[in-house]
Design a protein around this nucleic acid. Sequence first.
DNA 1: GCCAACGTTGGC
DNA 2: GCCAACGTTGGC
Length: 154
Amino acid sequence: MAKQYWLMKSEEDVYSIRDMERDGTTCWEGVRNYEARNLMRDKMKVGDEVLFYHSNAKPPGVAGIVQVSKPAYPDHFAFDRKNPYFDPKSDPENPRWFMVDVDFVEAFQEVVSLNDIKAHPDLGEMTLVKRARLSVQPVTKKEFGVIRKMGRRR
DNA sequence: GCCAACGTTGGC
DNA sequence: GCCAACGTTGGC
C-alpha cells in the first residue's frame, strides 16, 4: 500500500516536538477516542508520515514531522490503575485502547499555525479545520506536502 | 479561564 | 434505542 499521511495532536506542554526530538522515538499512548483508535489500529502502517500538531499552544499548529515505526499494539497505560490514562474497561485479555510508536523526523523551522492553515486555499478541507476534537486524523498527500513546505520556509 | 463543540454515559 | 446530562477537547 502507498504511504499514508496523518496528523496527530499533542498538548505542547505535555509532549512537544522538542521532547520528540530529544527522545528520537516514543509510544503514542493515551488516545481514548474510538475513531482515532480505529485509525491507528486498522489503518496506520510503518513508514506512514505524521504531522505533529501542538494543541493548547500559542499559537496552535503543526510543529514538525514524525514517522510510524511500530504498528498498533495494546496501550498498557490503560491497565495501570495509577496512570492518568487508566481505563477500568480495558484489560490485557481484551484491550480496548491501542497505540503506535513514532520516530522523530524533523522539527519545523517555524510552526505552521492553525491560522495559516485555515487561511491557505489548499488546506480548508482538512479534518483539522472541519472537525474539532479528533486527535488522530488522515491528511492527504497534497496537504502534507503543502504544510511541510510552509514549515521549512524561512 | 471561558465556553462551544461534540463524544460518551446512563436512565428510561 | 432515545436523548438529556455530563465530561473533555482545544481554540480563543
